[in-house]
Nucleic acid binder design. Sequence first.
DNA 1: CTTTTTTGTGTTTGCGTACACATTTATTCT
DNA 2: AGAATAAATGTGTACGCAAACACAAAAAAG
Lengths: 352, 352
Amino acid sequence: MTKSIRIKDIALKAQVSVGTVDRVLHNRGRVSEDALKKVLAVLEEIDYKPNLIARTLGSNKTYHLALIVPDPSQDPYWEAPVEGILQAEVEWARYGFRAERFIFNQHDNQSFERAAELALKSSPDGILIAPLFYRESLPFFKRFEQQKIPFALFNTNIHEAKPLSFIGQDLYKSGRTAGELMCLGQKDSGTFAIVHIYEDIQNSVHILEKEKGFIDYLRERNKELKTITMSLSDPHENSFRDQISTLCNTPNLKGIFVSTSKAYTIASHLKEINQKNIRLIGYDLIPENLGYLKSGEITFLINQNPKRQAFLGFRCLANHLLFKKEVQSIDLLPLEIITAENLQSYLDSEIH
Amino acid sequence: MTKSIRIKDIALKAQVSVGTVDRVLHNRGRVSEDALKKVLAVLEEIDYKPNLIARTLGSNKTYHLALIVPDPSQDPYWEAPVEGILQAEVEWARYGFRAERFIFNQHDNQSFERAAELALKSSPDGILIAPLFYRESLPFFKRFEQQKIPFALFNTNIHEAKPLSFIGQDLYKSGRTAGELMCLGQKDSGTFAIVHIYEDIQNSVHILEKEKGFIDYLRERNKELKTITMSLSDPHENSFRDQISTLCNTPNLKGIFVSTSKAYTIASHLKEINQKNIRLIGYDLIPENLGYLKSGEITFLINQNPKRQAFLGFRCLANHLLFKKEVQSIDLLPLEIITAENLQSYLDSEIH
DNA sequence: CTTTTTTGTGTTTGCGTACACATTTATTCT
DNA sequence: AGAATAAATGTGTACGCAAACACAAAAAAG
C-alpha cells in the first residue's frame, strides 16, 4: 500500500514548516509570497488528501447548527423534520455537532422573524431553515451572508437566496405525477377537482407550482377540470362541510387532488358518505392521513419526505463545515408514491 | 461542557501508565495482578467511553472488503450494486477502506463457489454478498463465521445465515403492492397474468415470494388469475414470441405482472402490436425497461434499488468494523413505485 | 552464578489543527 | 547607523487513542 501524503511531506518538499503549510491550506495569511509559491507548487503537483480522522481529532471543535422550523405541535407535518434532525444529531455527535431548534408559528410572520433573530443571536456555525415566509426571510439571508454563516434551505426554495444548498422536491413534477396517478385507469372522461385548503396566502407560490403540474398533465390528457378553494382556518366548520358536500355531488366527479397535507379533511367526509369512487390524492405521511390511506379513502399520497430533507440539510452543512466538502447546490428528492400496500415499508425504513 | 475521561486520566488515577490501561482494556495480558486490580477498580467507578475518532486514528488500519456479486455484463440489473459500491468506496476511502469485487456467473453455481472461494482467500475484513445460490452459499456462511469475518447479505435473504445484516426488500409485500397497482381503476373483473421468465430455477424462492403477495392481493379482490411460464434462455425465439402472442390474446386480459427485471421483453411485444390496454408491471430501473416506462407500455416499475442496497451493505460493514457500531440485523428498503412522471426524480437523486 | 526467556511497564509514533511562543527578517522612525 | 516596531516563519505542544517498541526486572534454564 502506498503511504498517503501528510502535511509533513509537503512541508519537507516545499522546505517550509508544517505550520506554514497549514496556513496556506486554510488561507490564514501570515505567509510570505515566496513560501506561498513554493507550497502551492507542491500542492499543484501532488494530490493532498488530509486525513479526516486526524483533522477532526485535532480541531477538537464543537459545531453548533441552528434549525429554524415551524412549530410541530401546530401542524404534524413539521414533526418529521425535527425527527430527521435528531437522527442526524446522533450520527454527527461524534464529530462535535449539536443542533439548536428555533420554532416559529407557521401562521405568524413575526414569529418567524423572532425565531430567525434568536437563531442569529446564537451565532451558529450553520443554519438550516424552512423559509415559509418569502418576504420576511430575504433580509435574513443577506445577514447570514454578511456574517458568513453557511445556510441551507429545505422544503421551500427561494431562488433569490444564495444558499449552500436547497433540499426539497420538484413541485411541478410532483403535480404532474399526481396527475398521472389520477388519470390511471380512468377510462371515460370525467371531472377532476383541485382543492385549495388555504391556511396561509404565503404558501400559494409553493402550492401553485404543484397545481400547475397537475393541470398541465390533465390538459395533455383532455380531462375536465374544476377548482375549488376552501379555508380551513375558517371558523365556520359548517360552511366547510357544505362546500365539500357540494364538491362531492359534482356530476361525474372522478377525483380530487389536494396539494397539501390536508387530504384527511376531505377523506373524513368521503368516509362519512361512504363514497369510494372518487380518487383522492394528497401529500405527506402525517398520522391523520395514514388511516384514510389504509382504509382506502385516500388512494395515493406523495411523500415529500420532510424527515429526510432535514436530515440531508444537516448532513450537507456538516459536510461543508467539517470536511470542506463541495456540496451540490440543489438536491431534489425522489417523488415517492405511497399506497396502502407499500406504506409500511416507508414507515419502517430508516434514513440512511 | 464536561470534559470526557481519557485513558490518561484512568492511568493517573490508578497510578500506572497509559500502556497498562490499554492492555487491560483490550485484554492483551502482560499486566501484573496488582496493576490489573487497580485499573479495574478505577474502571468500575468511572464510566469510560473511548473517543472513537482517536481510536480509528490510532489503529491506523486499512480495511479490505470483498464484494461477491453476479456479473453485470450478463444482466444489467447487477450494474447498480457495483455502482453503489464504487460510491461507498469513495466515501470510505478516507477511513482506509477498499473493496475488491468477486464476480460470478449468475447461471452457474460452480462459478459462484469459485468466486466465494477467492473472496475468502483474500482474507478480507468483511464480506458483502448477494447469495443467489441457496444451497451453495450455506457452507460459506459457516466458514465466514469460523474465520470470524463479518458478512452482510443483500438482495436475497437466507434466514439460516446469521449475517451482520441483510439489506433488501420484503418480497411478499412487494408482490402485494404490485397487485394493488394492478387492480387500481380496473372496474370490471378481468384476467391478470403472472409471467415467469425463468432464467434459473434457483431464483424461484425469491420470485415465488413476490408472486404469492400478488396472488393474495388479487384473491382478496376476487380477480381472475392466469399464470404462464417462459424461458428466456430458450434459444427458440419464435416459440417465446408465440407464447407472448397467445398470452396477449387471452380474452379480457387486463394486466401482466413480471416479477423480475425482464418486463421489457413483454413490453417490446406490446409496443409492436400497439396494445395499450394491458397494464404491465415489472421491476427495476434497468435501461431496457426505462424506454417502455416512458412510452407507456410499462405502467409501473417497482424499484428494488440495488445500488442503494449495496451501498448500505458496504456502509453497514464499515460502521461495524470502524466504529464498532451496532447495526440493525435487517434493513428493508421502501418499495419504490416508479412511473413515467416520477422516474426522472429517481434517476437524478443520488444515494445520500 | 551466569545466560536466556518471560513478563511488566513506560515511551514513542502516527495524524491535522490551533494555539502559544521563539526566532528571523523587513520596515520605519529617531 | 542603531533601535524600535512589525511582519513572516519556525518550533513546540496538546488533543485522543492504539500499537509498536524499548527497556527494565523478574523468573526460568543451564
